[in-house]
Amino acid sequence: MKKKMVLLSGNEAVAWGARMAGVCFASAYPGTPSTEILETMASFDELEAQWAVNEKVAYEAAFGACIGGRRALTACKHVGLNVAMDPLLTTAYSGVNAGFVAVVADDPGIHSSQNEQDTRRIAPFAKVPLIEPSSPSEAYRFIAEAYKISEEFDIPVLFRISTRISHTKESFEIEGGREVLVRPLTKAPKKYVMVPGHAGPRHLDLEKRLVRLQEYSEKTVLNQIELKGTEIGIIASGVSVLYAREACPEASVFSLGLSYPLPLERIRAFAKKVRRLYVIEELEPFLEEQLRFAGIDVIGKKPSWRCGELGVAAVKRIMAAEEREE
């Protein structure tokens, strides 16, 4: 396939990656920092892109396309996912036909929102996998992997970006082709109609899928280790990976592209290779809490750093055990 160099924001990269992955239908409700995802997708002649009256309708319209055998995407900002929580939790039970990805743009620092809730908390609650790119180029590449995971494990995938990724631009190469995989529409009421008699068996099936996803997390290319020194190790996800690398260039870094479920065995092995292991993450101590629960000794951040965005200077202060200033 012919490649070309492009300069894309994170939102544009998600749209281009979805196009390349063969997405045929997308629906969203506008809201910064996610709006440009659907705006960009609407410029592609090869797919159908529609605004919806709210995030629940957008989710269900896109999921209808997924059941119909076409890869589909829905997008919203973090608070918008609250509106779509009902279908999110139920479709985790039912599973998918063609791949389905829900892209959610968080807003650390509250640039254009009423709060800075952390969408990562929703993944274990909804029992769905969570993917977090750290840059626009990763957003472009990871969205294709999200569809493969969705179809392999019969599950919706949460794809979490944040304001800095959404609006930062990066120059990178993209493929010139597009492959559309069409799955036949099949009548399967026991899979898709979540009345009580069907929901119970689907819940059990979901738990089995999560076990397989846990095993997959240990080998996926979405999780990458960059070994350098043995004094300091850092575990991070999303844009915090870039901050951590710049703040502490001598550290070994475990970049989590698939941040739920966690690759605990790989992390345990990584922890043995360094003397001190830090967790760098914006907002909630989502990774830190899971690692501590698993018995992995990590150094986290003080509660004051649960507010607002991070940056290179902030990461240095976190690693120095300093408090956030008012």
Rank of each mutant, 00 (worst) to 15 (best):
N11V: 03
A13W: 04
R19D: 02
T32Q: 05
E36Y: 00
I37Y: 02
A42Q: 11
A42P: 06
D45C: 00
A49M: 08
W51K: 10
V53Q: 14
K56Q: 15
V57N: 08
Y59M: 02
E60L: 07
A62H: 10
R71L: 02
R71K: 13
T74G: 14
T74S: 15
C76L: 04
K77Q: 14
S94R: 12
G99L: 06
D106I: 01
D107Q: 12
D107F: 04
S113R: 03
S113V: 03
P124M: 02
I149R: 04
S150G: 06
F153D: 11
D154L: 07
I155W: 09
T163A: 10
S171M: 14
K187A: 15
V193G: 12
A199Y: 02
A199P: 04
G200D: 09
R209V: 02
K219P: 03
Q224G: 02
G233D: 06
A236W: 03
S237I: 03
V239E: 01
S240M: 04
A251D: 11
L258V: 14
P261R: 08
L262A: 09
L264F: 13
E265L: 09
E265Y: 08
R275P: 06
I280R: 03
E289H: 02
Q290V: 13
R292A: 07
K301V: 14
V315H: 11
R317M: 14
A320G: 06
A321D: 12
A321N: 12
